[in-house]
Simulated assay, not measured.
Amino acid sequence: MTWLSTLVIAFAMSTDAFAAAVSKGASLSRPKFSEALRTGVIFGAIEAITPLIGWALGSVAAPYVAAWDHWIAFCMLTVLGLHMMHNGYKTDQAEAPVRTRHSFWLLAATGFATSIDAMAVGVTLAFIDNNILVTASAIGMATLLMVTLGVMVGRMLGALVGKRAEMLGGAALIGIGAIILYEHLSAVA
């Protein structure tokens, strides 16, 4: 596999994480660059590990991962999105203190939900001539960059949409899950 195809795969794997990061940044009150970088590191590490897991599982898990990855991502992103929307609604009802940081576990769950497709890619990479460590590192670095940028873009959007940012972010996560599900189901049909 060429370096160009590795970069294309890396950035393709990070686009859904970018969209999730925009919603995460929008739901925070003016996140600092350090928070954006922290989010990028968490997402990037998870996004780099999942293709390694997929590659290690190889042909044994291929039918299971490929058959269910889109459903798992859809369900996880829907649950996280509904949780964010509920919190946004709750914030409207009773003014809660403004959040400046997401919990590690919330970020990790969102990062994992957006990286399930990377695990399936890892399974596929087990069958071709590919240096999985280079590819996984490229995916992790691209995700770190895209997510850090996404949180900062979300910061600007959060200032525009105000209190409704968390509700919009939750809706965006549900939309990402629906798109993942639609793409996989339409590819099968």
Rank of each mutant, 00 (worst) to 15 (best):
V188C: 14
A19H: 00
S14M: 09
E35K: 10
I72A: 08
A21G: 11
S27K: 02
T135P: 01
H70L: 13
M119S: 03
A66Q: 11
F74D: 04
S23C: 06
L28V: 08
S27F: 05
R38H: 12
K24W: 10
G175R: 10
M141V: 14
L185W: 06
A62G: 06
A62I: 07
A142M: 09
M76F: 13
F18M: 01
Y89N: 15
R101G: 10
N87T: 10
G170L: 07
D117W: 04
A73Y: 14
V79K: 11
M119L: 12
S137Q: 04
E166L: 07
G44T: 09
M76P: 10
A10F: 02
F112R: 11
L107P: 05
A94H: 14
S29L: 08
A159S: 04
A67Y: 13
W55E: 05
R155S: 10
G150Y: 00
G150K: 01
S29A: 09
A12P: 00
G170D: 07
I9H: 02
G177F: 00
A120D: 01
A113R: 01
G44Q: 05
Y182H: 13
M152C: 05
I9P: 00
G81I: 06
A26L: 05
A109E: 03
L37V: 08
A36F: 10
M76Y: 08
V8Y: 13
W105C: 10
I53Q: 11
V98K: 14
R99Y: 05
I53Y: 07
A178W: 03
R155G: 05
S115A: 11
S103E: 10
V60M: 09
A187P: 02
R99K: 15
I179R: 06
A96K: 15
P31F: 11
L145Q: 08
D16S: 01
L107N: 08
T50Y: 00
A26H: 02
L107Y: 03
L106A: 08
F18C: 01
A189F: 08
I180M: 03
R155F: 14
I49M: 06
T110W: 02
T78I: 15
I116V: 11
L80F: 12
R99G: 04
V8W: 15
Y64T: 13
F43N: 03
R101A: 13
I174N: 10
S59E: 06
A61D: 02
M85H: 13
D69M: 12
V188P: 09
L144P: 01
V79M: 13
W71E: 09
D129V: 14
G170T: 12
G158P: 03
V22P: 00
H102W: 07
T50L: 02
L57R: 02
M152W: 08
L149A: 15
V60P: 06
I42S: 01
G170F: 01
I128G: 10
A45I: 15
F33N: 12
I174D: 11
P63S: 11
T78Q: 13
I9A: 06
G54D: 00
A96L: 15
I49Y: 03
G140E: 06
F112S: 08
L107I: 10
A171Y: 05
F74W: 06
F11Y: 04
V134W: 03
D16G: 07
A12S: 03
L125G: 01
R101P: 04
F43P: 01
A48V: 06
I46E: 07
G177A: 02
F127E: 13
G111I: 03
M1T: 05
A19C: 09
T135I: 00
M119Y: 11
L133K: 11
A62L: 00
A118W: 00
H102Q: 05
A189I: 11
M156I: 12
